[in-house]
């Protein structure tokens, strides 16, 4: 029973962490994707490389870099702590780690969908009187809906599965920072924990498959609505 309680705690925490990570990183991902897809500026390649960094770095390195930056003694972490925002060894830190790790996947999916939108449609919107924001909101955004959805699902799935950076940055504190993967790892470390680990594996798989199915269904509806 205690194992089950810990398992459900981990699931609830993972869902919360992933949802918060996705919601917070999505607007940033859209902005960065738009910048990379539609603007040419000095440092374009550098920004693109930075965005993709969490994808290619060992997760433990990303976690350590987060700790260095957002830890209590980190440059940004110290500053934020004076504002009452703490990441290190809190669930918020898990969300930050999950968001950072999922970010490249989100940007990639959204950038591809923006590149697929004919810029001449945006020009047409401008000639009709729509400024840059209005044109983006009324033409580009609806047309990239499926791409945003795909990016969000990818980001969410990545957040649900994120382990290396999370455990490095916020450790593995049951009820506080113990996400689903961390819990699976923890159960596998104790004798007799295989059963609980297996239940969590099934749970994690169920959530992942459910998310993908839901996104497929939403994407189909959205595609029909935008006439793509």
């Amino acid at each position: 029973m205690t194992l089950d309680a810990a398992a459900y705690d981990a699931l609830a925490l993972s869902l919360k962490v992933s949802l918060v990570a996705t919601l917070f990183s999505l607007p940033v991902a859209i902005a960065v994707a738009w910048l990379l897809a539609r603007r040419r500026f000095p440092g374009h390649a550098l920004v693109s490389a930075l965005v993709h960094l969490p994808l290619v770095l060992p997760p433990v390195v990303t976690g350590y870099l987060l700790l260095l930056t957002f830890g209590r003694n980190g440059a940004v972490g110290g500053l934020l702590e004076s504002l009452g925002i703490v990441f290190a060894f809190r669930w918020t830190g898990a969300a930050l780690a999950a968001g950072v790790m999922g970010f490249p996947l989100m940007v990639r999916a959204i950038r591809l969908s923006i590149e697929a939108v004919d810029p001449r449609l945006e020009e047409a919107a401008a000639t009709l009187g729509a400024g840059r924001w209005a044109g983006f909101a009324r033409v580009t955004l609806p047309l990239i809906g499926p791409g945003i959805l795909a990016g969000a699902v990818m980001g969410f799935a990545k957040a649900m599965g994120e382990f290396g950076a999370t455990i490095t940055f916020v450790a593995n504190i049951p009820g506080q920072t113990q996400t689903l993967p961390s819990a699976i790892y923890a159960f596998l470390q104790v004798p007799g924990g295989e059963g609980a680990a297996l239940r969590l594996v099934l749970l994690a798989s169920g959530v992942a498959i459910g998310a993908v199915l839901l996104s497929e269904w939403l994407a189909r509806r959205m595609a029909a609505r935008i006439g793509a």
């Binding site: 047409a124 000639t127 044109g135």
Partner: peptide, 20 residues
């Protein structure tokens, strides 16, 4: 002056209607 503020209606060769 930005295109959006010129108030010049444009009809393009390909129509450029909004598909959504």
């Amino acid at each position: 002056i930005a295109a959006a503020r010129r108030r010049i209606g444009v009809v393009f060769q390909e129509g450029r209607l909004f598909p959504h």
